[in-house]
Design a protein around this nucleic acid. Structure first.
Length: 582
RNA sequence: GCGCCCGUAGCUCAAUUGGAUAGAGCGUUAGCCUCCGGAGCUAAAGGUUACAGGUUCGAUUCCUGUCGGGCGCACCA
């Protein structure tokens, strides 16, 4: 049970349940919701709960009166809390005992890389599907954002006791890959001086020519001459594109346990099975128009010729605006059917829950897919979709012009080469996933104090430097000498900040909000710097030096673990811009 | 016409699932290095949380409406 010793949340919850029982405010049928938080206002204690406010009505008491009862009945652990106070309209505020904070650094050091972890989820199998870009071009900046967020989510979920895996879904069955193959074939023909028309809506990016240039020439010439050669170009281009994406993501630090190809679902008959399963549940019908349609979309002009009937899924019964076509009148499935089959497949592989990260242009698909999965009988909470909002790249204060159609855009690889992957990830994780992000390339490029990414790393490097200095004086943080009290306000403030880390990790994981981690780390770095300025660490007073070293080392653990959740390195040393140029 | 995301300090964004006096960074202003890394610290200025109602002990958060920005609304994926 790593980290559980400091997961005060559990202890508080259990204590409050016991106090609620004793106060007669516990109802087994409808237990009051217990919300615990770390108040931003210090004077409100180190932990706070509003449970008395929430439970008062049910218990038939005034909030403050109930709060008084709960404070009296709360099981006291003098080594953890020195006081439980009633405040305001009925808040309960808990205050750490000084000795808890004194001992905290040693406990954090012994937990090491496990500090911050908990087993709250008890091994729930959960999957995070992210990036899942079409294999028809380099990864773009939204993919880069999704990669940072998805990888961070997997780490956060693991840190909170989930069995979490990353997965990449490869859309290799659609006609876009045909188009890629045809585009590459045309570029190859161009390269060897043969005539071959470039396909309509073909991929125009320079990477297409790069792909063509890397083909084995003899085989490619043969395929070009062959009537069935399109398939060769298609397969070659697909594999090469996938290999590029794979290595880019790997270099970026985004790991995937599985790469699942849409083509394998077709090959294994999963798509037909999904359809059959829907049909067996009476969720399929054939018609010209959907039976349910409340979408409010403007009706197009009536087609001249009567259409043949298509196959619909009854998604409209499960919250969708309308029933959706799963097989077109020409017998070809729409995108929705393989998507349903894919998610059915995920569930069959034992995942109890899946989190899909989709791009901003896909939010219209959430409802149809969710409703279809409900029609299939999957648990309503099986699929959770997070939209990774768009990224606006700025340079010189102006939006960077990009043309997806012409294949001219900044890729993940460009971004890594330009600002570095640590910096890119830090910037992407700094903002909430659902909000549009302005990515200032000039700021990300800068290696000075204007760049927020370095602030946290610098705090870590600074601690490492103090450690080196102390080691030169024969001092180490793990010396088993008697623990001196932390009596300076800046020491206590830093220790309090460190105590909050497991709760921040827990909250970030449950809310699916990785941005809470960098926010916490920036606060922690600020506390560290304040402590550093207020308290000389290495002094003539050896016991005090050791206590402060322990505190600083514990702060380094929190910073390192937090950065690690983000996939960002925690350097032991950093060089300033001026030094780099010198 | 309908749906989704968003609207918070000059700029970029937070605000612990409805909590107490709305906070950071950048920018601006004024200070702090004989001393463990100044990529740092301290302080000041900056707000009717787009607007109008509603729900309640309590609203940036939830509901309704209006305005503004972005993205979607196919038998394309």
């Amino acid at each position: 049970m790593p980290g559980a010793s400091i997961l005060i949340w559990t202890q508080l919850t259990e204590g409050l349940i016991s106090a609620l029982r004793e106060a007669g405010a516990w109802n087994d049928a409808a237990p009051p919701r217990i919300e615990l938080a770390i108040p931003r206002e210090r004077s409100h204690g180190d932990w706070t709960t509003n449970v008395a406010l929430l439970a008062a009505k049910e218990a038939g008491e005034k909030p403050r009166a109930l709060a008084e009862k709960l404070a009296a009945a709360f099981p006291r652990d003098a080594a953890l809390f020195e006081s439980v106070e009633v405040a305001g309209p009925g808040f309960l505020n808990f205050r750490y005992a000084p000795e808890f904070l004194d001992r905290l650094p040693s406990r954090i050091l012994s937990e090491g890389e496990n500090f911050g972890n908990s087993d709250a989820a008890q091994g729930l199998a959960i999957q995070v599907e992210y990036v899942s870009a079409n294999p028809t071009g380099p990864l773009n900046v939204v993919n880069a954002r999704a990669a940072a967020v998805g990888a961070a989510l997997v780490r956060l979920l693991r840190a909170t006791g989930h069995r979490a895996e990353g997965e990449f879904y490869v859309n290799d069955a659609g006609n876009q890959v045909d188009l890629l193959g045809a585009s590459v074939a045309a570029r190859f023909a161009e390269r060897i001086g043969t005539e071959r028309a470039f396909p309509d809506h073909g991929y125009l990016g320079s990477y297409v020519a790069d792909l063509a240039a890397q083909l084995p020439e003899v085989e490619a010439r043969r395929a070009l001459a062959d009537a069935d050669g399109a398939r060769w170009f298609r397969e070659r281009s697909l594999e090469k594109m996938l290999a590029w994406q794979r290595s880019d993501l790997s270099d970026y630090g985004a790991e995937f346990a599985n790469w699942v190809r849409e083509s394998t679902l077709h090959g294994a008959g999963d798509v037909e099975k999904a359809l059959a399963s829907l049909e067996a549940r009476g969720m399929i019908y054939r018609a010209i128009d959907p039976e349910i349609d409340c979408s409010g979309a403007p009706r197009g002009p009536e087609p001249d010729a009567p259409r043949d009937p298509a196959t619909y899924v009854r998604s409209g019964r499960f919250g969708d605006d309308k029933d959706r076509v799963v097989v077109k009148s020409n017998g070809v499935p729409t995108y929705l059917l393989p998507d349903i089959a894919y998610h059915r497949n995920k569930r069959a592989r034992g995942f109890r829950h899946t989190i899909d990260l989709w791009g901003p242009d896909h939010h219209g698909h959430i409802l149809p897919l969710k409703a279809s999965l409900a029609a299939l009988g999957l648990e309503p909470d099986f699929l959770e979709v997070l939209i990774v909002q768009q990224v606006n790249l700025l340079a010189g204060g102006q939006p960077v012009k990009m043309s997806k159609r012409a294949g001219e855009f900044i890729s993940l690889r460009d971004l890594m080469n330009d600002v570095g992957s640590d910096c890119a990830k830090f910037f992407f994780l700094l903002r909430s996933t659902s909000a549009h992000l302005d990515f200032d390339l000039d700021l990300a490029r800068s290696r000075n104090d204007e760049n927020p990414a370095y602030y946290v790393q610098y705090a870590h490097a600074r601690i490492a430097s103090v450690m080196r200095f102390a080691a030169g004086r024969g001092l180490a943080p793990l010396d088993a000498a008697a623990e001196a009290a932390l009596d300076h306000p800046a020491e206590a403030a830093l220790a309090r900040q460190l105590a909050a880390f497991p709760e921040v990790v827990r909250g970030a994981a449950t809310a699916r909000e990785p941005h809470r981690i960098p926010a916490y780390l920036m606060e922690t770095a600020a506390e560290l710097h304040r402590f550093y300025h207020a308290c000389r660490v290495v002094s003539e007073d050896a016991p005090r030096s050791r206590a402060r070293l322990r505190l600083a080392a514990a702060a380094a653990v929190a910073l390192r673990n937090g950065l690690s959740l983000m996939g960002v390195s925690a350097p032991e040393r950093m060089e300033r811009e001026a030094e780099v140029e010198a």
